[in-house]
Design a protein around this nucleic acid. Structure first.
Lengths: 337, 337
DNA sequence: CCCCGTTTTGGGAGCGCTCACAGTGGCGTT
DNA sequence: AACGCCACTGTGAGCGCTCCCAAAACGGGG
């Protein structure tokens, strides 16, 4: 087989040592930072590594260090909603990049079903990864407790309250962002501002509703409809709101994707945006620029979120206790409000 | 640290052996299929595994077997276009799932820059993964030759012609699909059918243009515009076409995302779809249902594509030679044509 | 009852690495 | 000149597993 011919035998640390005229130990020292290695030896080893094309064998190293040098990115979410939401992709990309800078490969685990979740938890708890980034789990997701409980460093995206183990997380200031948007709508002259919430058992859901209430106080229940962050649910919720409160003139939607659905539903009902109804979204995902008119929304700082998640994970892996980070949001004015 | 307390010492194969009253070797045999192990021993070992909560140490195993039991999913694409295109997500999800069924974790590598590509290639060639799924590389991407040349099993998504090493790939029948769509447009009465192509140095690009030409023969150059698969490029190309050939009444766009842009551009120019211009897309990605009107398009069988890619990779990992698979497409009628 | 072929089993060797420890030698002090 | 110190280097042990070979156990014939 060509494969065997092409891979005669990978050079080992011993080969490098022999070529450099030093011992295994010295090569190992060079590989791990080069402390207390003479300049001569260091040079020789570097040259030997170059000329043999040596690459460390992670498995051998991990076997003794007990660290796998990789982290899992766990997407705990029903399959279909998974990659339709542009936020996932943005986050995944950011984390891959941030981890790559630390030479940490990212293991992608999709845990859609309960069974998947158990499989993934077992895998991570078995020490196959040094830590995990957890995304979009519902509150109280057992996978979380399992991992953090087993002493695996975990950082979640979004707050995870009601969990016994203190869980590190990074989140945008959902509540504050919602306040920003609703205040903005009111300042723009809206008198009857409705909202479409996300699922209240998922990160971001309750906080954005709370922000809405912070500004408007106790609003009439007919002004609040619930979605599940998907585009279709946004359209359905908007139709429902129009039924219940035909006089609404402002609409705060808890995600861009739902906002896109809502705008479509409004158009279908003959309402002009922003003429009749001003619409504000949340996320500033790629969906925000594909609505007509483009969506005024709250920007989540995804790049910083992924960077902070990675930083927090690394610090936990280094033994620091779990921490939480809340990042500020920003209002992005486009055409819809 | 809590972490150390929670992980006293993971049970090893030796612990299991002791508890089951057998030797290491026997436990290992059970772990690897249980051939020539007496029923009594098998039962005892299984019970011991249960009660100790033993999980194999991949690193130790990999060290001796020289297989890492994981595969890389390499996205060789400029950063920004990466996750905006819903196709990537769909494919990634499909592959993750298909691999999970074989208990193979997926290592996600994003190789946006030339430097990234080298890093990723080195990583994969170093034997850290048993194989790689390659997505959206431009033709002649050096990363490909490197890997396949080093004897790493690779399966690409989309044809990779012009490469010296025979490379396994899975693709939808791009040319046939394009023919289907263009024929459909013509049968619907379109007399001046223009096209917006994808980049001609990327999988799918040239084939879809070829399919268009198969049906229409040598068309006037003003009917052909080029995009890069992104939504914006679709809008720009459509505007350009409208300029050059104001009388066009049919438009075949080589991706849904570009089609969405094109439809927006047409609307802006006052053309009604499908009244004035019938528009056909390609992909049937999630973008197809978010256009107005919904997009008539060619469905790429993503689920089968990921399944076939995985199957091909596994077969190559088992020593089979690389093969290619072309999957049929299907026309999906919606409102735009 | 012994012999021989066939399961089944035990355990040594070794995968490639890190870690700890025991040198080795150069150099400044007393 | 003898000593201690320090920077550096070599080496044995061992991480947890699989592989392989030889030994043990088991049966069925002769």
């Amino acid at each position: 087989m060509a494969r065997d011919a092409a891979r005669p035998r990978r050079p080992t640390i011993e080969d490098v040592a022999a070529l450099a005229g030093v011992s295994r130990g010295t090569v190992s020292r060079v590989l791990n930072g080069g402390a207390s290695v003479s300049p001569a030896a260091l040079g020789a080893v570097r040259r030997a590594i170059q000329s043999t094309g040596y690459v460390v064998n992670h498995h051998a190293r991990s076997l003794v260090t007990h660290r796998s040098q990789s982290v899992a990115f766990i997407l705990s979410e029903s399959q279909d909603r998974l990659f339709t939401d542009p936020n996932f992709g943005t986050l995944l990309r950011g984390c891959t990049q941030a981890l790559a800078e630390h030479d940490l490969p990212l293991l992608l685990s999709v845990a859609g079903s309960e069974q998947d979740r158990r499989r993934v938890a077992r895998f991570a708890a078995a020490g196959h990864v040094d830590g995990a980034l957890l995304v979009s789990a519902c509150y109280g997701d057992p996978v979380i407790g399992d991992l953090a409980g087993h002493g695996v460093p975990v950082v979640a995206c979004g707050e995870q309250p009601g969990d016994s183990v203190p869980l590190a997380y990074v989140a945008a200031d959902d509540r504050g962002g919602a306040r920003q948007m609703v205040s903005y709508l009111r300042a723009a002259g809206c008198a009857r501002i409705a909202t479409i919430t996300g699922p209240l058992n998922r990160p971001g859901g309750p906080q954005r509703l709370a922000g809405y209430r912070d500004v408007l106080g106790e609003v009439a229940p007919e002004l609040i409809a619930h979605g599940d962050f998907s585009e279709e649910s946004g359209a359905a919720a908007a139709a429902e709101l129009l039924q219940r409160a035909p006089d609404l003139d402002g609409l705060f939607v808890a995600s861009d994707l739902m906002a896109r659905g809502a705008i479509r539903a409004l158009a279908r009902a003959g309402r002009r945006v922003p003429g009749d109804v001003r619409v504000g979204g949340f996320d500033d995902s790629s969906a925000a620029v594909t609505t007509d008119p483009p969506l005024t929304t709250i920007r989540q700082p995804w790049a910083r979120i992924s960077a902070e998640m990675t930083r927090l994970l690394l610090s936990q892996m280094a033994g620091e206790p779990p921490a939480a980070v809340i990042l500020p949001t920003e209002l992005v004015r486009r055409g819809s409000a």
